[in-house]
Design a protein around this nucleic acid. Sequence first.
DNA 1: GTAGATGCAAATTCTTTGCATGAGA
DNA 2: TCTCATGCAAAGAATTTGCATCTAC
Lengths: 134, 134
Amino acid sequence: MPSARPSTRTTRQRDEIHRVLTTAPGPLTVTEIHAQAQRDLPALGIATVYRTLKLLTDQGLIHPVMLDGETLYEASGRGHHHHFSCRRCGRVFTLQTCPVSLPRGTVFAGGFVVDAHELTLYGLCPDCAALPPA
Amino acid sequence: MPSARPSTRTTRQRDEIHRVLTTAPGPLTVTEIHAQAQRDLPALGIATVYRTLKLLTDQGLIHPVMLDGETLYEASGRGHHHHFSCRRCGRVFTLQTCPVSLPRGTVFAGGFVVDAHELTLYGLCPDCAALPPA
DNA sequence: GTAGATGCAAATTCTTTGCATGAGA
DNA sequence: TCTCATGCAAAGAATTTGCATCTAC
């Protein structure tokens, strides 16, 4: 029995959506991705965006990030990093620093074997920290 | 101008939902909360569950936890802790240990002022780690 | 007794799916 | 040409809201 082969046909829509995500400075919402991709492909449908995000995720090219109750997507291959969510302006930033010392295989109290971790920081971004208090 | 006062009327529904969450060993989904509360209040509607979860959240008695794309709720006041999500059985555990050294007010590279952090660990729980590899 | 809370059902919002058409290879 | 992908619209799933009824105080 032949194993299911992932589709790999190149289309303008897939290229564009992938480009938007690899170009973006941080993770984007589905709506933002749709809006930005529509600049080049005005007829792009939202269903195609959802289908493509799922496809690219399956291919490992991008991955979802759940943050503040929303699903954002970002390009893969940017190395280990974390996110900073600003309480004031709501923007999400990518931080390359990792304040967690948890090598793969670390065994935690009680026998939990850790192979990955996700950290989200909350606070004020540089811009908002510089503003006068509300 | 009188400030908006939060509703505080005591009802069986609110007490029950709060009890379910304070009794639970870990965070629960909306559906789990509804099902468990219905044992004592069979007529409990799902809309009331949503409304009550929002209310209790506003009052600071509980708080939502976004995990693996689902919204779970847990009682507040359990001190600083994190979650461990098992890749194999899908269960979510609460860990009291914190491997992150980030006191409030820590200023991060670039001027990000951190006042809180959320960490989720992924791997195998003790039960699953003891099983033979798939 | 009265304002606030509930339960139901309808309305929203977000995401997925069916199907006829369009376009990579 | 021949699939596979797309766009639209309808279908699902999750959450919120309107409204008549009920209930804590």
